[in-house]
């Protein structure tokens, strides 16, 4: 029997997910033995036309990383959906919108102004900005359309499984590939990681008090962090209680609070609301003024609570992103 065919593709992403595949190190040899990688733009010279020429369902599985921002990404996602028996949303951006999803706080014109005019590293005296269509003597040039908002992959196509993380931990990738090869996948729609909060596998969990109360929220650069005690107990905004486990807490291991990249467990619909709830619960004050003062220390609520999941949240985007009133 021929080996199952596999595709990798990237949409609005940073390239870190591709890096994670390389991080498989020698394990990748096992994977390459077991499957045929027939589409992987970052590493192999196959083009969109090669995928278009395939029969529907010819790919056993496609791993798609990155969020969906442009018309081209949408088209590729739909093409891969048609050609693949399984679609795995690979990484936080594909799973929940990820860091690019935070752009849903801004409208398209503002993003272009910042990126093509104001950014300190930009020199653009003629104010050149991308145009969807440009007429030149030779004909019409087109670029992909940049949509108003960023979507997760499952807001674009039907997704079978999710590999969470920014990027997904090697252990989870290997586990998912093995589960696919050995045909022991869980029910469709599952996130291929343990369904329990990160604190449960955190090496510092024993130092997390049963009834945690903290006087003030702090940021890592404002303090000398104890390298053994639970970070949340030290006042750092560690998102472990509202984040899925599966990464073995490398950030906490490096003395940095978890920022929530694996997304929530299946019991939570809106990760940011859960984070908000947890932080508000442990703040040790019942006095209105004092509460306000302490909350001032959370300088960027959206970026902190929804670092990786704004497009998947209930609120989805700032209304101005869709042409509503500008901020």
């Amino acid at each position: 029997m021929s080996k199952p065919k596999v595709g990798f593709y990237w949409c609005a992403s940073c390239g870190g997910c591709e890096e994670a595949v390389v991080d498989l190190a020698e394990t990748i040899l096992k994977v390459v033995d077991a499957v045929d990688i027939v589409f992987w733009p970052v590493a192999l010279d196959f083009k969109r036309a090669d995928v278009e020429a395939m029969e529907n369902g010819a790919l056993a599985v496609s791993f798609v990383n990155g969020a969906i921002r442009t018309s081209e990404q949408e088209e590729m996602a739909e093409l891969l959906r048609a050609k693949s028996q399984l679609i795995v949303a690979f990484g936080s951006c594909s799973h929940l919108g990820g860091i690019p999803g935070l752009a849903n706080l801004h409208h398209q014109a503002g993003i272009f102004r910042r990126v093509y005019q104001e950014a300190p590293s930009v020199v653009n005296p003629e104010n050149t900005v991308p145009q969807w269509r440009t007429e030149v003597p030779e004909g019409t040039l087109t670029l992909p359309v940049f949509h108003d908002t960023v979507k997760s992959l499952d807001q674009t196509i039907d997704v079978d499984y999710y590999l969470p993380g920014c990027p997904p931990p090697v252990k989870l990738i290997v586990g998912a590939v093995m589960a696919i090869l050995e045909n022991r996948l869980p029910a469709k729609g599952a996130v291929l990681a343990p369904d329990i909060a990160l604190c449960h596998e955190c090496p510092r969990k024993d130092s997390k008090p049963e009834k945690l109360l903290i006087k003030e929220f702090k940021r890592p650069h404002e303090m000398l962090t104890d390298s053994r005690q639970c970070l949340l107990a030290q006042g750092l905004l560690c998102l472990g209680p509202a984040t899925r486990s599966g990464c073995e807490a490398p950030c906490v291991g490096a003395n940095m609070p978890c920022t929530g990249c694996l997304g929530p467990t299946s019991h939570v619909k809106d990760q940011g609301a859960k984070v908000l709830s947890a932080l508000a619960s442990i703040l040790d004050s019942n006095d209105e003024e004092q509460i306000e003062a302490r909350l001032d220390d959370i300088v960027d609520p959206v970026g902190t609570f929804y670092r990786y999941s704004l497009p998947a949240s209930f609120l989805y985007a700032h209304p101005s992103a869709n042409g509503g009133p500008q901020p």
């Binding site: 369902g57 028996q85 849903n104 979507k151 807001q155 674009t156 196509i157 045909n183 209930f314 989805y316």
Partner: peptide, 18 residues
């Protein structure tokens, strides 16, 4: 801002599974 619904319809019927 309108939120796109998660898609939950298969485009390709899978014969014989994975």
């Amino acid at each position: 801002a309108p939120k796109p619904q998660a898609r939950r319809t298969r485009l390709v019927p899978v014969a014989g599974g994975v």
